[in-house]
């Protein structure tokens, strides 16, 4: 889990605090999906706190079908060279060899993501075995706590990636945060029942009961397409947002990216959200959830 780097004896990398610490630094920010170095620069110019380097945004993965895998290392390196902000990249669920490759490339965060085609239908990556921190998706509190038990340093609600439809993100956030509120008023005996029902370690349930929040930061992903979408999920309790297809599948990505950044900071101020929402052009077209052939959020166990 942690390894000693050269330097003074007390110098330790890869600790839980160091892994979760980077997520703390991303709070109140927007992490943007990018597929080229040019897009990465647009994202950084617009105020992104980090970029997610991938070959196709989720909307295109959905359209193209086929197996979606980790991106070409050359492409990830190109994006790392283009920006000064942290770079994240995705591996398939359970594909620890892809995660090892991403770590060796020096990415700042690995997203074990349902947007790619799962590699293992029973196991997620043992994330404690890595120095690089991991973010994982969750649709409910049990899933979030199982990922944290496996070593995830950051949780994002999954939503339904590539749809431009916020309804699933709202459902997942409300489910996670609603259950946290219920656990806070549960008595000791009920916490054991919660652990059983959630299929999660009881010590993590205890921590949630005591803190009233996850032991790691909770961000939101999957379906954010407008500044008001960002303000909505931030008010519901997300601490930062991931925007995938919503920026670079819109008519005019740069001003929209900047507007979502401002709305994420000033999420409680409707006058600012209104001001930045003016004249942004067409958002991505978006999809009804009922019409989808594949629901990405159902991947993960």
């Amino acid at each position: 889990m942690s390894t000693d780097a050269p330097g003074p004896a007390s110098h330790t990398v890869g600790t839980t605090r160091v892994k979760r610490g980077l997520a703390e630094m991303l709070r109140g920010g927007v992490i943007m999906d990018v597929v080229t170095p040019d897009q990465a620069k647009v994202a950084e110019d617009a105020g992104a706190v980090a970029v997610m380097a991938l070959e196709r945004v989720p909307a295109d993965i959905r359209r193209d079908g086929g197996v979606a895998r980790m991106s070409d290392p050359a492409m990830i390196e190109g994006i790392r060279q283009a920006v000064t902000i942290p770079v994240m990249a995705k591996c398939r669920i359970g594909h620890f060899a892809e995660a090892q490759v991403l770590e060796s490339l020096g990415v700042d965060y690995v997203d074990e993501s349902e947007v790619l085609t799962p590699a293992d239908e029973a196991h997620h990556v043992d994330k404690w075995a890595f120095t690089v921190p991991f973010v994982c998706g969750a649709t409910n509190l049990g899933e979030a706590l199982r990922r944290i038990a496996e070593g995830a340093a950051l949780i994002r609600s999954k939503g339904e990636a590539g749809t431009g439809n916020i309804v699933e993100a709202v459902r997942h956030l409300r489910s996670i945060l609603g259950d946290i509120r219920k656990i806070q008023v549960a008595d000791e005996a009920e916490r054991f029942a919660w652990a059983k029902e959630l299929r999660a370690p009881v010590d993590l349930v205890q921590q949630v009961a005591e803190r009233g929040e996850l032991p790691v930061p909770l961000f939101c992903a999957g379906g954010i397409a407008t500044p008001a979408d960002a303000a909505l999920v931030m008010q519901l309790g997300a601490q930062a947002v991931f925007v995938g297809s919503g920026i670079f599948k819109s008519e005019d990505p740069s001003p929209r990216a900047k507007a979502i950044v401002e709305a994420t900071t000033h999420f409680r101020d409707p006058a600012i959200v209104a001001k930045v929402s003016r004249g942004l052009g067409e958002p991505m077209r978006g999809e009804e959830i009922e019409g989808l052939e594949v629901k990405l959020a159902e991947r993960g166990w």
Binding site: A5, G7, P8, T12, V13, V18, G21, L22, V107, Y109
Partner: peptide, 24 residues
């Protein structure tokens, strides 16, 4: 981020021993 670390610091004039610092 792979090089982010924790280390003990001796802070001048700070009572109570070294300070465990987190560098991100």
């Amino acid at each position: 981020q792979l090089a982010s670390f924790e280390a003990d610091l001796d802070v001048r004039g700070l009572a109570g021993g070294s300070f465990r610092a987190v560098f991100i």
